[in-house]
């Protein structure tokens, strides 16, 4: 259940990573900063008495702005996309500390989005996976709709063939800025949900976010395919859940004296992404022989 809860909470992030990495072909590391940004904004807002649901919207807006900064650095200032996103990510570390005023912030005893669910009689144990599941499916449906609008088509074409879509009169700079913004808005919502379910926001909670997001997208694609946009979105969300299940499984694994600790996660995730990226190519080589 814990893995489901995390899988759905990170689902927003993974959908966002799918947008930038797959649709826009824009490797965006900003999420490492915008996820804790969302957590910080949400935690500070709730502590100040703001409704937890409204705090999600504030997180979304904050993440959107952070993503737009990356987009603007890339398109208007001509900084390489990867570097632009790293710059924003680094800057966000300081900004997140400023927002919270300290490295971490607990939400113990404060209201969260889970309260309405638990007060209806559902146990805390089930409430988070249920609510986050519903939220992330709503987000998935919204993205499915968005990708089929004229703007969504322009977004897909911007990633696939920039010359073509420019020739059709679309300003690709604007498309990139808005899409990277949206992606980071989603990452920030993930951060806000995580901080509310775990009861704390931490400035370091974003380390390795992009790699985890990427791993989820790739795991989903490998298992469920990505023939159509709808399928790819669903694969991304399910990939997020399966990735978290796999992590939980790895952590419970015991090989004699040896067992994995949470600090090994980054190494495991990196290895998983390398394997997922290289295996299809290797398999093709072997089959050709």
């Amino acid at each position: 259940m814990g893995a489901l809860e995390q899988g759905f909470a990170y689902g927003f992030l993974v959908l966002g990573v799918y947008l930038t990495f797959r649709v826009l072909d824009f490797p965006d590391l900003t999420v490492d900063g915008s996820l804790p940004l969302g957590a910080a904004v949400s935690a500070v807002a709730i502590s100040a008495g703001v409704d937890p649901f409204v705090s999600l919207l504030l997180a979304l807006a904050a993440g959107f702005c952070a993503g737009m900064v990356t987009g603007i650095l890339n398109t208007k200032f001509g900084i390489l996309h990867l570097l632009a996103s790293i710059l924003t990510m680094i800057a966000l570390y300081s900004i997140n500390l400023r927002i919270m005023g300290r490295p971490n912030m607990t939400l113990l005893g404060k209201p969260t989005v889970l309260d309405p669910v638990t007060s209806s009689g559902i146990s805390m144990f089930n409430a988070a996976p249920l609510l986050f599941g519903v939220f992330s499916i709503l987000a998935l449906l919204l993205l499915f709709w968005l990708l089929h609008t004229a703007f969504g088509l322009a977004m897909q074409a911007t990633g696939a063939n920039r010359q073509m879509i420019t020739s059709q009169g679309v300003n690709t700079d604007n498309v990139i800025i808005l899409t990277v913004g949206l992606s980071n808005g989603l990452a920030a919502v993930s951060g806000a949900l995580l901080c509310q379910s775990q009861g704390a926001a931490d400035v370091n909670m974003g380390v390795g976010t992009i790699v985890a997001g990427l791993a989820s997208v790739i795991v989903g694609e490998t298992l469920f395919g990505c023939q159509s946009v709808g399928r790819a979105l669903l694969a991304a969300l399910l990939g997020s859940v399966i990735y978290r299940l796999a992590i939980a499984l790895a952590l419970s694994l015991k090989l004699g004296q040896f067992s994995f600790t949470p600090s090994d996660l980054n190494l495991l995730t990196a290895l998983l992404v390398v394997a997922a990226l290289t295996l299809p190519g290797l398999r093709r080589k072997v089959l050709r022989r």
Partner: peptide, 25 residues
Amino acid sequence: CGSLSIEQNLALANRRGRSHGLGRG
């Protein structure tokens, strides 16, 4: 655009010079 369908490509071209908003593609 190879990753979009024929009708989606045509829909983009059919909006050349107009805004690509949130209406159905």
